[in-house]
């Protein structure tokens, strides 16, 4: 009888213990001793990866027959068009809350600017524009510039 009761107790005491301590996963909030899932690296530390990763693009999501300008078009649409406009005139939907208008890429100043200038501005920003270096990698920045050149070549077809 005692053993039966003990067995019943054992069954009853089984709790569903799905969770327990877990490692710090990406974006987890801070916990002792001062670690979290998004910690700033120390100033001046240099990671080991090469400046350009060996394979800049996975086989997908870009089809093999897309060239740099085609990939750049897709990236431009996401990262640049909200401020700079779908056709690069500086008239994107975010323009209304900006204190300074984004320049048009068809402007002669930007037509003549070297690729390096465009790359630097994308990475580090300029004026009120924030840098996009952590959002688009170096090969992606090159693709965006390729698209901008294609855009400029097509010409200022509106206004």
């Amino acid at each position: 009888m005692r053993r039966a009761a003990l067995l019943l107790c054992a069954l009853a005491v089984a709790g569903c213990d799905l969770s327990g301590p877990a490692p710090v996963r990406p974006y987890d909030p801070a916990r002792p001793p001062g670690v979290s899932g998004a910690m700033d690296p120390p100033d001046g530390a240099v990671a080991m990866e090469a400046a350009a990763p060996v394979n800049p693009y996975p086989a997908n999501p870009y089809p093999a027959d897309w060239d740099a300008a085609a990939r750049g078009a897709d990236l431009y649409r996401v990262f640049c068009a909200p401020c700079h406009g779908a056709a690069g005139h500086g008239d994107g939907p975010v323009r209304t809350i900006l204190s300074v208008a984004p320049p048009s890429f068809h402007d002669p100043r930007l037509r003549e600017a070297p690729d390096g200038h465009l790359l630097r501005v994308i990475e580090h920003g300029r004026g009120i524009m924030y840098g996009y270096g952590s959002r688009v990698t170096a090969p992606e920045r090159a693709d965006i510039v390729a698209f901008l050149r294609a855009l400029q070549a097509k010409g200022d077809t509106s206004r």
Partner: peptide, 26 residues
């Protein structure tokens, strides 16, 4: 969600991204 095509996590936006439009100041 910048890293959705690159890695396991899609990513959450950094403050910098929000500030790109909402705190565009020089």
């Amino acid at each position: 969600h910048t890293s959705v095509a690159k890695g396991p996590e899609a990513g959450y936006p950094q403050q910098w991204t929000c500030a790109s439009c909402h705190l565009a100041l020089d």
